[in-house]
Amino acid sequence: MYPRPIAPNAKAHRALYMGLVIAILLAWLAPLCAIILTSMRAPKDIATGNLWGWPTEFGLVDNYVGVFTQTPMARFFLNSLMITIPSVLGVLILSTLAGFVLSKFKFRGSMLLFAVFVGGNFLPAQIMMIPVRDLMVRLGLYDTTYALIIFHIAFQTGFATLFMRNFIAALPNELFEAARAEGASPAQILIHVVLPLVRPALAALAILVFTFIWNDYFWAVVLTISDSVKPVTAGLANLRGQYVSAWNTISAATIIVAVPPVVMFFLMQRHFIAGLTMGAVKG
């Protein structure tokens, strides 16, 4: 292990070290603390410019209740889940399949295909606005959650395929040769060899992709207009539009919007590190 572990019996040393780490952590999270404190403030503090001190008056309940009563935030929340979850599942399935093929089958143009996935993922997404919008109109999906789901799956598949390909490429070849020698079909190899081994990678990928899609705002503006399909980030912006200076309400909404990715992260933390360890790291 590096750096050298501090000996378990050096109690004072350990406590001191932990103190130092926590001090750095507090500085690191100062901006976040500002959002949390602001989400508890009464409007008066905001008007007088007290953004960093302890609130002089608390409006915690008002602010958080306000988020849900002033906008259809609950509806947006549900929409976000209905967009994000299928998208993440779709990305995981497509990228596992594509990553498996690109890493373990030799065929002409495989590198070019991989290059296209990587390259497409590097594009600034804004430039695809008009063509993607027109495509969704032609498909009759404009202003539906499907438009967002399809776009997110397609766009994130670039990054995810890159990730999964590297991960599967790092799995020992002997496993695959042994399976082939036993007469296993590609589908059987996929199900019995690849899937059990890529689980940690899928967990890590799921968190990243969930975060990316959950936090998307741009495409929500481009592809949806109805409140009945808009995700939570667009709701956050509506709040910004209606109560421009109500930073306390906006902060509360920001915290609420951040909750699902944070929860997801804490739940899957162990897998996340494990997945990255084997995937991204040993590419």
Binding site: L102, M128, A154, G158
Partner: peptide, 15 residues
């Protein structure tokens, strides 16, 4: 296996 990803990525992103 690779078709769904290729088609979707090709139609939406590459095109």
């Amino acid at each position: 296996f690779i078709m769904p990803a290729v088609v979707l990525f090709g139609v939406v992103i590459v095109a």
